[in-house]
Design a protein around this nucleic acid. Structure first.
Lengths: 206, 206
DNA sequence: TGACAAAGTGTCAAATTAACACTATATTAG
DNA sequence: CTAATATAGTGTTAATTTGACACTTTGTCA
């Protein structure tokens, strides 16, 4: 009998070129050597599962102190050819201003648009789809969109985040009305001066 | 080093006397011997985590083929005094017409109103609260309420289920309008004849 | 200084939601 | 047998929310 093991896997999202992207890492070890896979790894003896997720994300991508939430636990007996491995999946969100460092465990880390995912190891395809669905649902009733933006952002940038997550176009006036009357953003005194007409920068308020 | 183990715990809900109740089982073994706890147990080698949840629920309560959904995985290192035990929590729903049989593993199984829970073992209090919150949220965007009713039911019974879950009173006319124009129930040809004026019995349609 | 690109702004109709009270019908008690 | 009672069942109106829709402003760059 092989030992039962628990892993965490993290679906790390960001927005690049107006599209939702996922971070994948090329595996250096068997099984699925050379394939892309989600960042993740084994839960250690004296850490909570949440801590393991934070640690693995930090080790493999350099990303720290980001939004990270448990998604679902995948526990089919044969999901990992090495033996009985149950994985607790998480999803995480970063603004793309965050610097991405390749960790020691992982060779190639790269962002992939959800339309153009390469084949991925294990059941990670299902995990990614599940995460995307959760993110869409969550956008409806939470302020999760702000986690994909820097501290200050324009309303157009916020709208682009929503559109990338939902995969639809939104009406500019209706979107701004909704956000503003929720009272969850406040204007900063700064203006974004790139592009043509400067745009007001807002800040998230809780 | 003690071996890492995975358990499942199930928050089984039903409605009794217009109140949401949870099934608890008195523990026969240490730790927490004599305390109440959620039904559950260890995940076996060759079953999926979902299968383990179904199996444990069947063994400990006799309940089969009910709505059962994964809730959250609780993985704090010291949540179980026996060693490192990570639990995958589920919640399940039964109509109270289901017969409850005390299983072999469990001595006393009893229903408790959520207002009057006894002290419970491990971190099961948190798991129950988490389950209740999930159930409330889910009522908004799904048909989960029907799982707590027999095949045929009156609209008043359905309303009482919603009120028990939400902990609020609902307007009868608004409630009926909402349910009927969702088109998720159809009238059967039967009438409930208990009480005063007979009520039409409905059936859930998917 | 004119063309362009993105920012920013308001109205109206439709749909949804919330508040609200009486009538109908069977049972049971006197 | 009839009156009391308990629960079923039923519509309207006002307020709110949502969705559709187009033009003006303002800075940059050619």
């Amino acid at each position: 009998m092989t030992k039962l093991q628990i892993t965490v896997d993290i679906v790390l999202f960001t927005i690049l070129e107006r599209q939702l992207h996922v971070l994948l890492i090329r595996r250096l070890a068997e099984p699925f050597r050379g394939s892309y896979a989600l960042p993740g790894g084994f839960v250690l003896e004296n850490e909570s599962v949440d801590e393991a997720a934070h640690r693995e994300l930090q080790e493999e991508t350099g990303v720290e102190k980001v939004f990270l939430e448990q998604l679902y636990t995948f526990g089919e007996p044969n999901r990992d050819p090495r033996g009985r491995v149950i994985t607790v999946a998480y999803y995480a969100l970063v603004a793309n201003s965050h610097i991405l460092r390749s960790g020691t465990d992982a060779a190639d880390a790269a962002w992939f648009s959800l339309d153009k995912l390469p084949p991925v190891a294990f059941d990670h395809q299902s995990i990614i789809e599940y995460a995307q669905q959760r993110l869409r649902n969550k956008l409806d009733y939470s302020n999760v969109g702000f986690e994909l933006l820097p501290e200050k952002f324009t309303l157009t940038e916020l709208q682009l985040v929503h559109e990338a997550i939902l995969g639809t176009n939104l009406d500019k006036r209706n979107f701004r009305r909704k956000i503003l009357q929720q009272g969850i953003v406040e204007p900063s005194k700064e203006w974004q001066k790139t592009g043509r007409k400067p745009a007001q920068l807002y800040r998230f308020v809780d």
